[in-house]
Design a binder for these strands. Sequence first.
DNA 1: ACTGTTCTTGACACATCAGTCCAGAACGCG
DNA 2: CGCGTTCTGGACTGATGTGTCAAGAACAGT
Lengths: 193, 193
Amino acid sequence: MARPKEFDRDHVLGKAIEVFASHGYEGASTEALLTHMGLSRQSMYDTFGDKRRLYLEALERYSTSSTAEIIASMNAEVSAMEGLEAALLAFALRPSTRPADGCLGVAAVTEFGRTDREVTAITEASGATLTTAFERIIRRGQKAGELASDLDPRTVASFLSTTLMGLKVSARAGGKPAVLRDVVRLTLRSLRK
Amino acid sequence: MARPKEFDRDHVLGKAIEVFASHGYEGASTEALLTHMGLSRQSMYDTFGDKRRLYLEALERYSTSSTAEIIASMNAEVSAMEGLEAALLAFALRPSTRPADGCLGVAAVTEFGRTDREVTAITEASGATLTTAFERIIRRGQKAGELASDLDPRTVASFLSTTLMGLKVSARAGGKPAVLRDVVRLTLRSLRK
DNA sequence: ACTGTTCTTGACACATCAGTCCAGAACGCG
DNA sequence: CGCGTTCTGGACTGATGTGTCAAGAACAGT
């Protein structure tokens, strides 16, 4: 019936994620977004509504896909310990491919704190998903005798989430992969039986 | 000779820190800064130059005083282990007094990454100071037999810095003090002999 | 090839941004 | 009290911000 869109919605959303991740919400001008997304002003507004909705959608997609990715790489390993290592290393290794931009989720938390309801809802949801996944694999590791059984799985899950965020900030601050790798190793050491 | 300033430079700088910490650099409008600092436009420009310099000065002061505070509370304890606990808890406990605003240093890192030279210089300097202090107390703890001696002090220092940043993000995200406390406990557990 | 829809482009409107300027009031000092 | 300095408040400028509008081109279906 009509002329089809000349851009892939998912693709340009990915580009928007890059811009928001490296400049933050306030720091990302519509001009910069449009240039990097490679589409016209009107198309962006027609497709996403406004800057805020574009951001929320970007954050939503990033959060879900990012946590899914981490969980997948975690469950791909046979042992719980190796799974946890893979999960924590996922970000520590990423700098080699995308050195500049950090984690959009962490950026959202630091920029908005808990002042923005919709943002908070998204970050909390992905955070909960991640900790739950951690908890599950921790219990598995305890049953298999890999992890110390006197540890509370929920606390360990919180600990790992916290460390992961710390690693993300470190990576953004320019922490070298080798150092991050050592940190991961030390983090897991404490859980070993 | 002349009319004296009707405001305390240090005090208003502290107010500026609060605004930058809760809204970021881009998110903090001059209007909001002036209102919260309680001074006129002209006074601010005369005193600090421009928004960027105000920010750099705020970041500088925050970074130095914040790390100094952590190091002080760390060295105030008799044992190395208790010192480390105090250092990590410093932020986990702060939310009760100042719930909203996070760490300006972490905010600077996530907002700018390594794109801004002057910002990077400040954050790196305070980061180095902190890790060095960690390293020192770790060696002390190892000699005293409190900490496992097979650990590399530099790696442990990086690990603690990373964890501290993670705790700061968690606190900003709304992590409950009780949970943060447990995370700290678990963090230190791994270092124990 | 015609029609209707929708994409694209560029110009436009309005608000807010950082930063400057000026006039007048407030103050310390002689 | 008067002088010089500096603070205060408000108006102002130019740039940039987000978001809208209108005109024309591109495409699918008949």
